[in-house]
Design a protein around this nucleic acid. Structure first.
Lengths: 205, 205
DNA sequence: TTGTATTTACCCCTAGAGGGGTATTTCTAT
DNA sequence: ATAGAAATACCCCTCTAGGGGTAAATACAA
């Protein structure tokens, strides 16, 4: 049988090199491409045959989730495995909904990634430590941030005040303050400091 | 001649696996150990012969810089190469001062890491894109944060207010506000949001 | 078509942040 | 012995953040 054609995506070249070496150790795997962001992934899959895409969730430009959604919409036959730094409970529901085939923490061995790929290629799914993802859900109602809200979080990270953000986005300061209040409420946080830490740890920034 | 004995440290196992594969491709390299935080690194070098330590700068517990400083103090013969996600100008002076032998961005190929190791092992130093590190230094005077200041930054990241921090540390709220002002002034920042982003990107938190 | 989410915008209020000082004690290194 | 850094604590001030509402227009999906 022919080898499994794999596309790997991560924004750090050294991680890509490492993943490639790890996966190339198996004769039945073939890394056919590399990408450093979501757009490159989409571009690659339109032009090449790919069986499995291994996606880092934290990438500049188009993030892994958005990219995965688009792949699953346009190319439902391609299997998708998400690599993530943290157990991000905020994403697990969406990951399942989108139909992503596998999800594992970077805090894992290369062998486990190989196992996950083999399992997913055989049509099964592979969710690593899914219990870690669904913990801490006393607040089970999962909120997702809107595009505008994320835009505002990024500006906050740059140190802008509400009025400065308002100027930058050509909206009223009142609106910015409303967004900020909504964001904190959605995430059950109570200050911008907490928010920035959350955002960085969850790949929002 | 005997092979170069390398200890690699990163808090993500999958990256460790990748680095190990990349480095093992060279016959003159030998990865003799792995560590997921600074304390493990220090523990390892006390018990084993190591020529070169490759350190991720962002690790939980003891961060890469602190760890490097301790290695260079206690074992000056061990070479240290720092791996970092971002071009962190705030650290380059300290990195040079500590006597770290090499520094390169994760945004590099595995081959470049191999080259860096070979070069460092031969007694030279390897600084990748050092111009990226020293840019934007209109404010060239580098300040270092005190232990107390770092303690306060961490509390800020947890979302505590000045008065809450004061209660936690058994000091006056006035003192906390003084520390906060000093921190922002030292780093030339203007809000806690900026501060938290800076702290996370520079391994302070 | 009829909700639901999103984005926009305003009101109220209190508490806290940020920036300008000054000043003491303690500790450390020269 | 003495200069310097660090940690402590207080004064002043203005502006912003955070939290409580309400409500409109748009857009999108069941």
């Amino acid at each position: 049988m022919s080898s499994v054609k794999i596309l790997i995506a991560d924004d750090h070249q050294i991680v890509l090199d490492g993943l490639k070496m790890v996966l190339s150790a198996r004769e039945d795997f073939e890394v056919v491409g590399e990408a450093s962001n979501g757009l490159e992934v989409l571009d690659f899959v339109t032009k090449n045959r790919v069986d499995i895409v291994v996606l880092d969730i934290n990438m500049p430009g188009m993030d892994g989730i958005k990219c995965a959604r688009k792949i699953k919409t346009d190319y439902p036959n391609i299997k998708v495995i998400i690599l993530t730094m943290y157990a991000q409970k905020s994403f697990i529901e969406e990951i399942v909904k989108i139909g992503i085939d596998g999800c594992l923490l970077k805090n894992n061995t290369g062998k486990e990634l190989s196992d996950a790929i083999a399992r997913v290629h055989s049509g099964k799914s592979y969710y690593d430590q899914i219990q870690n993802f669904s913990k801490d859900d006393k607040e089970l109602k999962e909120y997702s941030l809107s595009e505008r809200e994320i835009e505002i979080i990024r500006k906050l990270g740059d140190g802008l005040t509400s009025s400065q953000i308002a100027d930058a986005l050509f909206i009223s300061e009142h609106t910015v303050k409303t967004h900020r209040k909504n964001i904190l409420k959605k995430l059950n946080l109570h200050s911008s400091s907490e928010l920035i830490q959350y955002a960085l740890n969850n790949g929002i920034i």
